[in-house]
Structure formats: structure tokens, C-alpha cells
Design a protein around this nucleic acid. Structure first.
Lengths: 324, 324
DNA sequence: AAAAATGTTGCACAGATGTGCAGGGCATGC
DNA sequence: GCATGCCCTGCACATCTGTGCAACATTTTT
């Protein structure tokens, strides 16, 4: 039994071949599950489950071309208004089981494939959106990649990899992975300094700063992934609001001017901060949702990102609202 | 009503948006067709048909990662043996409704996406395989492309675009399209010369010779597309066999040495021939099937192509058989 | 070695999906 | 104005697909 995936996937090499064969017969040739079963001499149920497996682990990818006429207009307008190099606007429809963040991440995976080239160093942030991106990316867009986590990865005990994008992305791309062994927000400045000073962390931070591509997202201030993943108490959390936070970028709470606000959390955040990424040539922000509009607008205005992947409604909001 | 597709597709811009929305709700969000229908306030049947339409016209693409362990070995071996720059081996399974050629074309579409870059000139041959490639390609891999047909396009009356890859490819990619207004094989050398001398043909031929990428296929000598598409009589056809033909490349019947054989057909073939493509840096041969092995081997040996997309069984045969 | 936990398989069945057909709208032609 | 042909729509119904469950197999723990 050999591992692929995040290191904890239970699928054998042999099964992988079988999975691909089943997927081929079903999706490319258009046979029914029963026909596939007959041809391979296994039961229909097994075929059904193998297909589910193949979809789940990304061996089968379904991509959609989004030809919204409006989409192009929105994209051009966004690029013009915020001086972006490129942008992509996907549908805003979400459901109970798939959040808007996941939708954006899924489309982002389709879009950034065209940006990734052999040997690139990809610095990545964190959260539901980038997690979905990692899960939906084409595993062989390029070779010899290196994925670097820009933030600490360790969360409160369980759900370790529920939001972690870096390790998922790396294992799916067969890339080397550098990460920062520590939490996202430490209990004290002293701990933060100690963690940042570790050789592994130093290496990751240096590599991230000189990356070719940065994948960024923005955390809202409501039920954000960060809040769910850390042991921050609610009253502490709301204190960021009082201090003028409008969102969270790379683990730092940023204010209306886009700068990290003056708040203890920001002094205890591990890893690379927003001001340290300007040397990365392509910085793609993947985010959307009504409660993130303000933060996205500010992040783009500050030039933290030079590319944006978002949804129609967020795009409209970004273009409409304009507080003087 | 605006056209996309080969110029004869009946779908409006508005319908395109609706199609994408339906596909999004169904494939990305995972709603059932009934749920999609409810959300958009249309009937389930319409949703069902819209999904079929979206799949048919390539708005929805299903891609499969083929992780055959053997695949890698075969690819490396092919590259070594024939001095290829790259190769790809897909499953050999076909069905009544989807031929092996179409399978290879479909996988080829996935693979060559990574090769195509903005502004490229793509010279394309012809046949079932390349037709399937055109139908399965991601329509927005790149912009400002130019597709050039290397051969004449006009066939016997109907089924005009049944095998024509160039116009399909061009319209799907939103590319400019140069083609040669004439048949594939003329009734006489004189007609051939006249057709080749036309300004449009001259332009296409010149452009094709200096293309960045060539998509090639090989016709077998049995029930080939060429035979089905031309008005060649059976006895004439079999005379190519007598003259030592082992396959058809770019409309020319080639012999064991890879050179076009001495046969009237070859003097009456319109467009760019095999010997005229060596200036094209990337020449991808997409072909497979037991009856094409010999021809593929010869074409690769002659360096007509420097990349190969084929299936497992053909790959094995190419590596095994080796007549001294 | 027995027990417990965990993963796998086949099945029944509910639910989701695709399609031949009939009726209806809409344009073109007479 | 009426007939004709074409396409689109909705439906009934056959087929295909997914899943909770129970039995079985396999691994891990005690």
C-alpha cells in the first residue's frame, strides 16, 4: 500500500490504474456503470464507488467554461479600476453543501493552471477558498514545483488539514513543500519570535518572499476559517473589530487603510505578512462574498494583489461602492 | 443570434450564459437537475437538455488524469527510441460509439493545452482523430491564435465538416482560420496546381510552413476517413497498396521508407506535404490502432513528428516490433 | 487468541436521469 | 389564410445511479 495525497490517502498504485480505467470507460467512452462493470468483470456497485473515489481525489476533473457576456465586462472593469494584470469572475451561485468560497476556489484552480509553469515556487496562504483550490487543481500542470506556506499551519488539535492549503496543494502537485512549524497566531510575542526564528521557518519565509506566485485569500470577520481554526476567544476576536479591522489578510487584521491594525494579534501572527510580498511578481487574490467586499477593495487598492479571482456579485459590489 | 461552433450552431449568447449557469449549479455545486430547475424556475427536462447541450458543445469538459504506472514507462521508452521531445499514452479501450481515434483525439486535446500559447500559429491536418481533438479542446487555452489547414477541405458534397479539424478548431478557439479552398485529392495534376496557385491557398501554405505547432495524424489504408471523404474508387484506392503504401500522412501515401510513394494520387494531393513541415518546431502526431502501427513507426523514424500521442497498445506495438 | 475497530462488498430500493413521443408554437411557402 | 415543416416543450416511463444497511473480511488492540 503506497501513499499519495496528503500522506494519509489509502489508495494503492494498482487501484489508481483501475480507477483511471473505470473513469475512462465511463466518462470518455460513455458506457453505463453496468457496462463498465461487465467489461471489467466487477460489480456495478464497485464501479459506482470507484467513480466516486476518482472524482473525490481529483483524478476526474469537470471544468466549465464560463462565457458570461457580463463576465468579460466585469473583468475588464476590475482590471482597469484596480490596475490588475488579470482577473476572473465566476458565477455567484452557492449551495448548502458548497460555499461561495469553495466555488471561487474551484474556478480559481481552473484559471491558475495557465499561470503555473515548471519549476515555479508557489507561496500560499490559507483558508477554505485556497483549500478548495488545492483540491480542484489539475495535478500535472507542471513539474518540479515548490509550495511554500506563508503562515503557520498548526491549528487546534483536530481538523489539522481542514483549511491547510499548502500541504494539500503540494501533495497533489507532487511538489516539494516548505511549511512553518507553528500555529497561526501565537499566545505571545515571545513565542512568535521563537517560532519565526526556527531554521525551518526561516527557510520557508525566505523562500516565500522570493516566490514566483502567491495565492492569497481574505478572511472575513464573522465565522471565518481563522476563527474556527484558532483557539481565540470570542471577546478577543471582537476586539479586532473595535480596533478597526475590516478583514484578515495573511493572518493579519487589516484596517481601512489596508495596513495591519494596531492589535496584539498582529504582533503574534507567524509567518510572512502582507507588506512582505511585493517582490512576488504574480499575487493572486481569491476571495468573494458580501462581507469581504470592503477588505478586497482595500487589499487591491494597496496593491497587495495584482490579480483577482472572485464572483459576479462581489465584482459588481467592488465596482459600485466607492467611498470618497 | 450569434454563431459559435462551426458556424452552424444555433445558440444565442443569452442561452450560452444560461447553459453555463446550469452547468455551474449541476457540476460545481452538485445540485440535482430537479433542484437546478427549481432554482431557475424552468422544468427538469429543460435542465437535462441544457446539460447535454453544454457537454456536447464543450462548455463542460471532463478531464481524466491517467496515472498508469506503465504509461510513464511507455512514454519514456517511446521518447528514447524515436528521439521524441514528448509523448503521451492513453488507455486503449474504445466502444461502439467512440472509436479509438476519437479517444486519442480527446486525450490529445487535454495534453496539447499545455503546449499552446498566445499568438501561436497552429497548422492542422485532418481526420477523425483531429476532429475529436478539436471538439474536446479547452476553448480558452490561449488568445490570438491562428489555425491553418494544411490540406484541402472540400470533400464530396455532404458531411463537409465531419472530418475537417481546422475550421472546428478555429471557431472553438476563437482563432483566425486559413484554409485551402479545394479538395484533398484532385482529379488531375493540372487542377492541383491551379488550386495550389490560388492566393488563398498560397497564403495558407506559406503560413502553415512557418507555423509554431503542427497537429498531424495518420490515415490507415482500410476504411480511412480519407477514403470515406473522397470520391476515390475502390480499385484506385487499392492500387496504392500495390504501389507499397503503408499509410497516409498529410494526404500523401507513404511507403516503407517513409517517403511518399510513386503514385498518381500523390501528384494530385493539395496543400503541404510531409517533407515541407520540418521548419515547424513542434510536430505532434496523434494516432493509434493496430493498422496504423507500421505507418506511425515509419513517420517517427523519418522525424516527420517530434511528439506522439497514442494509446497503450499501439505504444507497446511500436516498441515491440522492429523489423531489421 | 479473542475482541474490537475498521474497511469492503453486495444488495434492495429510492431517487435521479435520459428519451421517444405527442402536442403546440412559429416561421416559411404557396 | 392555410398548409407545411421545423423545432421546442413537457410528459410517461424505462433505465441508470447513489446509498443505508447488514454481512463479511481485515487489521489492530487487548
Amino acid at each position: 500500500m503506497n501513499k499519495t495525497g496528503t500522506g494519509r490517502e489509502y489508495r494503492t498504485g494498482v487501484a489508481d490504474e483501475a480507477l483511471a480505467r473505470v473513469a475512462h470507460l465511463y466518462y470518455i467512452l460513455g458506457l453505463t456503470q453496468a457496462e463498465v462493470a461487465a467489461r471489467l468483470d466487477i460489480t456495478r456497485f464497485k464501479v459506482n464507488r470507484m467513480l466516486a473515489q476518482a472524482r473525490k481525489n481529483g483524478m476526474v476533473r469537470i471544468e466549465i467554461n464560463v462565457p458570461y457576456v457580463e463576465r468579460f465586462e466585469l473583468e475588464r472593469a476590475l482590471e482597469r479600476k484596480f490596475g490588475l494584470e488579470t482577473s476572473f469572475v465566476c458565477p455567484s451561485d452557492a449551495s448548502d453543501s458548497v460555499s461561495l468560497s469553495e466555488v471561487i476556489g474551484t474556478y480559481a484552480a481552473m484559471v491558475i493552471s495557465e499561470t503555473i509553469e515548471d519549476g515555479m515556487v508557489i507561496a500560499t496562504s490559507w483558508g477554505e477558498t485556497l483549500r478548495a483550490l488545492a483540491l480542484a487543481i489539475n495535478p500535472d500542470v507542471a513539474r518540479n514545483l515548490c509550495v511554500v506556506a506563508m503562515l503557520g499551519a498548526l491549528t487546534s488539535q483536530t481538523d489539522l488539514d481542514k483549511f491547510d492549503a499548502a500541504s494539500t496543494l503540494a501533495s497533489r502537485l507532487g511538489a516539494e513543500c516548505l511549511y512553518i512549524p507553528g500555529p497561526i497566531i501565537c499566545d505571545s510575542v515571545r513565542t512568535r519570535d521563537a517560532i519565526n526564528a526556527q531554521p525551518a521557518a526561516q527557510r520557508a519565509i525566505a523562500q516565500a518572499r522570493s516566490a514566483d506566485l502567491a495565492l492569497l485569500s481574505i478572511g472575513g470577520l464573522g465565522m471565518s476559517s481563522l476563527r474556527r481554526a484558532t483557539i481565540i476567544r470570542d471577546q478577543d476576536y471582537s476586539s479586532t473589530l473595535a480596533a478597526g479591522a475590516i478583514g484578515n489578510l495573511l493572518g493579519r487584521f487589516i484596517g481601512k487603510d489596508g495596513k495591519p491594525i494596531d492589535h496584539p494579534f498582529n504582533d503574534r501572527a507567524v509567518g510572512v505578512g502582507p507588506e512582505e510580498i511585493f517582490d512576488i511578481p504574480r499575487r493572486i487574490l481569491c476571495a468573494g462574498g458580501p462581507h469581504k467586499v470592503e477588505a478586497i477593495r482595500v487589499a487591491l487598492t494597496c496593491n497587495y494583489a495584482n490579480a483577482l479571482i472572485t464572483d459576479v456579485q462581489t465584482a459588481r459590489a467592488l465596482l459600485a461602492e466607492d467611498p470618497f
